[in-house]
Every structure is written in C-alpha cells, then in structure tokens.
Write a protein that binds this DNA or RNA. Structure first.
Lengths: 106, 106
DNA sequence: TTTAAAAGTAAACAATAGTTAACTTATATG
DNA sequence: CATATAAGTTAACTATTGTTTACTTTTAAA
C-alpha cells in the first residue's frame, strides 16, 4: 500500500472522506475533518445541516475548517446532530485515584 | 456510605471537588465541573489561570459554569493549560469499519 | 461538454462574547 | 472575631463572531 497522499490531476491534495480514529488526543483540524467525514458519510450537504440547526453556512464552514474562533454551542449542536460526542482525557495519572463521584454530578 | 449530597450549615449544596470520570459522553456542566476540579486540585486560583492565559476572570467563570456561549478557543486554552483534552466518540457502529487513515490526517 | 448541485468565499451589518473595573459574597486562617 | 484571599457578579464598553446575500469555484452526473 502506498504512503503517498492522494492528489488530483493538478497535484492538489485531496481530503480523505473516511472517519479517522480519534480515540486519542486530537487537533482542532482533525476534529473538523472528522465532522466533515461524518456529514458526508451521512449524505448531508452543508445546507442540509445548517438549515436543520439554524446556523449559517459560513459558520458551518468555519467549523469544518477547524477554526476555533467559533462559539462552543455551535460546534456542539453540529456534533450532536451528526452523532458525535466528546469524552475527556486527563494527562495526570494521580487524578484517576479518586474516582468516587458524588450525587450532583448527575 | 450515604447517598445524600453534601450540604453546608445553611443547607446549601456543596460542589464536589474531585475529578469525575468522563470517559463517556458528558454534558457541558459536567465538563465545567471537571475543569474546576482539575484547577482546584492543582491549587490554582481563577486569577492564576486567567492571567496565565490572558483571558478575563468573567470569561473563565463562564467556562467553569458550563456556559456554552464561549469561544471554543478559550475553552481549549484552559483545558490544555490544565492538562485536559478531548477524545471523540461516534455513536454509529458502521463508521468503525473504515478506519484506514490517510497521511494528511497528521 | 453542459448543467445542476454542492462547496467555498466575500463584504456589510447585526448580534453577542470578551474585557475592564469595581463591587459583593464566601472561604479560610491567624 | 478580624482579616485576607478567592470566588463570583455587574455594568458599560470594545472586539469579534455570526448572519445575510450574492458571487465564484468544484464536483459529479446526464
């Protein structure tokens, strides 16, 4: 299997459309690519999603470009609509010891 | 062990200060509580963090209250400073099949 | 190769998140 | 209790994100 990135006839890089495995720490760009991959995998256009969520297309494009200058609420709306969610990673092993969770966490 | 939430002398609920286990899908409030728990566990004050990151205290308070009307960039700055990061969960099992990741994911 | 749909961009404006500064309320500690 | 530190709030203002509309570029299919 080739390690070369796919390019089109003009030599321009072509974005992959498959969901990456982001079970580990990832960059905003990687998250953005995962969102696009999920959306296209669900056969939804930018307008499909932006209209369903009442957010503008330019904003959705910003989100799918990995621009972090967006409102958290808008990112979460998009992720929830596409069936994506976060889990949390903590770099510090010591914090794994006290795992008892009090009632009002829920 | 008691199932009653901790309260102070006035009967007001007291927030727990331990890191919750957020390896699964969580709410913005839960994330906020995890951030506060991590910060206090590191013995850092709101001002310590806000000054280190050049963000205002009111903004940091919004983040630690689970307000999603904040800039994603500011949330990520705080998380990175405290050693927290996200991983991604996808609710759809079918998307786990195609896990091949091309070069430009990195 | 035409054509239509989707993606992506741009600019002017509206909406709102962020800052500053000052203040009040809690929490701890001598 | 008295004091100091941290937490949390408020209001006026500034900075910036989000919207709208329209346009250009890509992509894919007839």
């Amino acid at each position: 299997m080739s390690n070369l990135a796919k390019t089109n006839r003009t030599g321009k890089a072509v974005k992959p459309t498959v969901m990456p495995n982001l079970s580990e720490r990832f960059t905003p760009t990687q998250l953005a690519e995962a969102i696009t991959a999920k959306r296209t995998g669900m056969k939804l256009s930018l307008v499909d999603v932006s209209e369903a969520l009442s957010i503008s297309k330019p904003t959705l494009v910003k989100i799918e470009k990995g621009d972090t200058n967006v409102k958290l609420a808008n990112l979460l709306k998009v992720m929830e609509y596409l069936g994506l969610s976060f889990s949390l990673l903590c770099d510090d092993a010591t914090s794994k010891e006290e795992t008892e969770v009090s009632d009002d966490w829920y």
